[in-house]
């Protein structure tokens, strides 16, 4: 079984995001980048599946200049991926349609039975890469997947799709297929820095052409804004005891908790 994992980097939300002077994008001056959380779940699942069925895990990551895609790919190798490929060359993170186009082009030269990617990313304004890519390559797809198993004959896979209220739909898919992973069976494993650093020096990071780039998202961003926090909320200030007193009073007004009118 050849597993392929699609990854990208997204802005680290530990930094407060700010809007650029044009008002339609993010200010990039202080931005730092991390692997998209759900893509890491996809990799973790792929590694478990490979260990169970045999085969290979190939990681594809978008070649974006901001951030450090080579470090991301070296981290994939440190976690146990067999092969890593940097896809395309972008100045900034592309929209989901362009990302799907680049991955779709790169897959021409890469064997794939099951393609796993994060169900979503925090920046996918124009939709999720998984189903966009699957449709471009005419592959079946399922999103919001919480459980994956590959049949013994390697021709089909079972995937659980999560709905509201903890209800789960079980599907059987013909392979090759694309799954958007919601969570992994175990937390993504730790990649030791010493190994990542060593791999940065020695590992082979292949490059794949991302194709023509496609037509983009078809969206025009008119404005971006930081939602006004507490625009509706009355903020309670003071030390923890003062805050607790105020909350207790608010609750008491509504007849909840001690001190409430009885």
């Amino acid at each position: 079984m050849d597993y392929v994992v699609l990854l990208k980097q997204v802005p680290d939300l530990a930094e407060d995001l700010e809007i650029d002077s044009a008002g339609t994008g993010l200010d990039r001056e202080w931005m730092s980048f991390v692997a998209s959380e759900w893509d890491e779940y996809a990799l973790e699942e792929a590694l478990h599946l490979r260990d169970a069925t045999g085969g290979t895990v190939t990681c594809l990551a978008l070649g974006v200049q901001a951030g450090d895609v080579d470090e991301l790919l070296a981290t994939c190798l440190a976690r146990g991926a067999d092969r890593v490929v940097r896809v395309g060359s972008f100045e900034q993170s592309p929209d989901s349609h362009s990302a799907a186009g680049a991955f779709a082009a790169a897959l021409d030269g890469i064997p794939h039975d099951l393609i796993l990617t994060g169900v979503q990313a925090i920046d996918d304004l124009d939709g999720q890469v998984g189903p966009l890519l699957a449709t471009r390559r005419d592959l079946p797809h399922v999103s919001v997947v919480t459980h994956i198993a590959v049949a013994a004959d390697g021709k089909t896979a079972t995937a659980h799709q999560e709905y509201a209220g903890g209800v789960v739909g079980e599907f059987e898919l013909d392979l090759p297929a694309v799954l958007g992973v919601q969570t992994s069976r175990e937390a993504p494993r730790y990649a030791p820095v010493s190994r990542v650093r060593q791999l940065m020096k020695t590992a082979t990071i292949e490059k794949a052409d991302g194709g023509g780039g496609g037509s983009g998202s078809g969206l025009t961003i008119e404005a971006m804004a930081v939602p006004e926090s507490g625009a509706t909320a009355e903020m309670i200030t003071g030390n923890p005891v003062a805050i607790a007193d105020r909350i207790a009073a608010i609750l008491a007004e509504r007849g909840i908790g001690a001190g409430a009118p009885r």
Partner: peptide
């Protein structure tokens, strides 16, 4: 035990 991280 994370000597690589220490060095970084």
């Amino acid at each position: 035990g994370e000597s690589g991280l220490f060095e970084l």
